[in-house]
Amino acid sequence: MKIWVVAEKKGAELRRISKEAAAKAAELGEVEVLELHGSGEQRSSSHAGASALAARAAASPPDLIVVGATPAGRDLAARLAAKLGWTYLSECAELRVEDGRAVAVRSMYAGKVRATIAGALPAVVSVRAGIMTVVDDAPPPRTEAVQVAAEAGLEFVRFEESKASGIRVPLGEARVVVSAGRGLKGPENWKIVEDLADVLGAAIGASRAVTDAGWRPNEEQVGQTGKTVTPDLYVALGISGAIQHLAGMSSSKVIVAVNKDPDADLLKIADYAVVADLFEFVPALTEELRAVMGKA
């Protein structure tokens, strides 16, 4: 089986999700890891990227093209699948090949249903973070560059930086997420959240209530109308756990919930539930983790 992995970079390094995708693909067959290169400083559109890949596939078609399911990855994969007319499986949590079909396990209905779906090869698939565990310091796969030419009809104008941008891990592919809600009482109290996230190397998330209230930017919203996250560790601080929020994080591997209210719904589904005043507990936890993780 010939498999392409289209990798994404963050700075000079391959994104973690791309390394995981490559590792998964290696399990299934012969892998070529590709990187899209635009012309000059301009960004390439997913449209243009798909065209470039389709052209390469016309020359020597693979059986499977795998992309990490970042928002950009999914965008590219969708256009590519449509262009090639191939089977499309998005956001796979598990993936295998059987009898000439790609078989994937993914969630549907905003996380309420787990589906096993199959489609005939050749296929384009996007895979979720954590599809395969890779060791952090394993040597990165070799990549081949694919040149992308700009597509007519669409030009890149500029990049607008968002006010809340920082050096944090983006929410969508974070392995650890620290999320906070109304229990924090006000936007001025977020330092304890940031400190904990720093220690854990985590992305910061928020409940809808606090993004609606303007305490945190919309990009941080986890839930039905925000982002669905599947980290290894999800720490929920002062979030009661309405169904719409749960939909966004219930497939996290390990859930820790801290809440003053012993009846909060999130405590009931958490792997580790702490009933305490978060203003006291969270700084203490940050300190303890600092020690335990050897980052003192």
């Binding site: 249903v113 787990r114 096993t116 219930s250 792997d271 539930a273 305490a276």
Partner: peptide
């Protein structure tokens, strides 16, 4: 199709 795996109640502190 399956419902997502039911999370068992975890440890409460």
């Amino acid at each position: 199709l399956e419902p997502p795996p039911v999370r068992k109640a975890g440890r409460v502190m």
